[in-house]
Amino acid sequence: MHQSTSLSAVEATSYYRHLGGEDYESTIHTQGAWNPHEQHMAPVTGVLVHALEQFQPRDGMRLVRFNFDILGLIPAGPFSIETTMLRPGKTIELLQAELVAHGRPTVRVTAWRLQTGDTGAVEALEDPSMGSPDDAEPWDGMEIWPGGFIRSLEGRVEPGHRPGRGRAWLRSPYSMLDGVPTSPLVRLLGLVDSANGISARVVPGPGGYMFPNVDLSVHVHREPVGEWLGLETHVTFAADGVGLTSSVLHDIKGPFGRSEQILTVRPIPDAK
């Protein structure tokens, strides 16, 4: 095990420790599925969203869109988050945060923050609700994946779930940051990157295919609530090594956003 952290799986009750200022450290619960010495993108998403929330917050404004670019392997252990304002404005702002490990950026996110107001008179929603996780069946389908992050999840599944398309609920007993309260937005967006694994078209393994995502794009039309994330997901593979995982995001009140992940689909190299 190459997880660089002072907290074991038994001791760790969060995905990250805040070391002060811009500095953080991952725990075993962030461990990725493709490599044991890297972080899964899902908790990385959560801690970056938390950093964006804390950066120059303003009443009557909320974060609504996040574009994450994964610039390389995200190493386990210590890292820093550098947050800046790219486009200030009275009603619209564009923020950026970078996760920097070993002196280089490994994930970069830009996020739009918009002014809110009362539009209840024209409120409308087209996506149907997934219902309640209480009515879904317990599910261990994520166990095909290795890694500490996947082991941290509880899953439930809706009828009709199959490779390439499905509806599943996820939650985690662990906080995003040790001893630091975080919002439902942070908690639920910290699970969204799991979408690429909940209804995989092919099972990863020797002689098969890998399909990691190189980005994550999330649009949030409503502030989410609770601790359960519902993922209504379908997966597309093109014939030239590119794929797309698309999801409608749900909480216990219904749909609150959408996510997209572009994939690089390639044969798994033979072990030497």
Rank of each mutant, 00 (worst) to 15 (best):
L125H: 03
F149R: 08
E98C: 08
N67D: 14
R156F: 00
R62Q: 02
N67S: 15
Q96F: 04
F149P: 12
F68D: 06
P78Y: 04
D140Q: 14
L73F: 10
R171V: 03
E143K: 12
S129T: 10
A76G: 15
A124H: 08
S80I: 00
R171K: 14
R62I: 03
S175P: 07
W139Y: 12
R108M: 02
K90A: 14
A97G: 06
D69V: 14
G72C: 09
V157Y: 05
P88Y: 00
G147Y: 03
H161W: 15
T116F: 05
G164H: 10
P138D: 13
A76M: 13
E93T: 05
T119S: 04
E126S: 14
V109T: 06
G141I: 12
G131R: 06
A101D: 00
H102D: 07
L95V: 05
P88C: 11
M142I: 12
G77K: 10
I74M: 11
V109H: 01
R165N: 14
H161A: 15
E154Q: 08
P105S: 05
A168D: 02
P146A: 13
S172N: 04
E154C: 07
L114W: 01
E123K: 09
A168T: 14
H102F: 02
E98L: 04
G148T: 11
L73D: 09
R151A: 14
S175I: 11
R167C: 15
D134A: 15
T91W: 05
R65W: 04
D140V: 12
G141D: 06
D140W: 04
T119H: 02
T83G: 01
R171M: 03
P105A: 06
R162H: 13
L73G: 15
H102Q: 07
V109A: 05
F66T: 05
R156A: 13
R151Y: 05
V157P: 10
P181V: 11
E93G: 08
A136D: 06
E143W: 12
T110R: 12
R167W: 09
R156L: 10
R87C: 05
T84N: 06
P75V: 11
E93F: 00
A121S: 03
W112G: 04
W145F: 13
L71C: 09
R165Y: 09
R113L: 01
P181C: 10
G147M: 11
R151Q: 11
R65T: 14
R171N: 01
T110M: 09
D178Y: 02
D140R: 12
G148R: 11
T116R: 01
L86E: 01
W139N: 15
T106I: 08
T106M: 03
Q115N: 02
V109M: 02
P128Y: 12
S132C: 12
T106W: 01
P173D: 04
G120P: 00
I150W: 00
H102E: 03
Q96C: 05
M85V: 09
F68L: 09
P75F: 13
